[in-house]
Design a protein around this nucleic acid. Structure first.
Length: 180
DNA sequence: AAAAGTCTCAACCGCCATTCC
DNA sequence: TGGAATGGCGGTTGAGACTTT
């Protein structure tokens, strides 16, 4: 995505090429991950350790699940966000195969807007304008704006989410969260 | 058909915590 | 003990894709 720009230490930046990806994969297959600072040199990469770590953690790791989030994953993110706030790595830790970056992106691009559209404040998960919810659900615009042709599904989903949020206090144990 | 506006998401930045010497 | 190095995280950016006008 982002093009390479000036860099203090002269290393490459910006999008990873297939060759760079392959070098990183090959190296980690042989030696395992960790020691990110010395990895680039050892792997023959003109990148900083941080960049290698990020690329591996978010894209190259073999168990990463890419693509659309399932409904239950989305519900879980909302539930966990209500409990934990913007602690994306902790939230991602409860979603097998998902990374903190992906969860964070999905939150900002999809879930946040959805909650706002439902009249739920995404920061504190409180319903801030109940009439708005009613208006939204009585309007055909909702299904268009959310990309779902069946508005009834959204009413049901909103009910599920509202219920989830209400259950938050009792759900901490169910989720078995290990708070640091 | 094309210009303008909006959205998505890969990647960077800066800060903080931990580890090392 | 303390400063430097390193790892990890959340916030933010911006190119390119997509949609609307």
């Amino acid at each position: 995505m982002r093009k390479a720009c000036c860099n203090k230490d002269g290393r490459s930046k910006g999008p990873w090429s297939k060759e760079e990806d392959q070098k990183l994969i090959d190296y980690i297959k042989l030696h395992g991950d960790g020691c990110w600072h010395s990895l680039p040199k050892a792997a023959g990469l003109d990148r900083c350790g941080k960049s290698c770590r990020l690329r591996w953690m978010n894209y190259l790791k073999p168990d990463i699940k890419r693509g659309n989030f399932a409904q239950d994953e989305e519900d879980l993110i909302i539930k966990l966000h209500a409990l934990l706030g913007n602690r994306w790595s902790l939230i991602a830790g409860r979603l097998p195969g998902r990374t903190d970056n992906e969860v964070k992106n999905y939150w900002h691009s999809h879930i946040r807007k959805k909650l706002i559209c439902m009249g739920i404040d995404p920061n504190n998960h409180k319903i801030y304008h109940h009439h708005h919810i009613h208006d939204v659900y009585s309007s055909k615009n909702l299904s268009n704006s959310l990309g779902n042709p069946n508005a009834d599904d959204h009413v049901m989903h909103e009910n599920t989410m509202t219920r989830n949020i209400k259950e938050d206090t009792s759900s901490t144990l169910d989720l078995n969260l290990n708070m640091p």
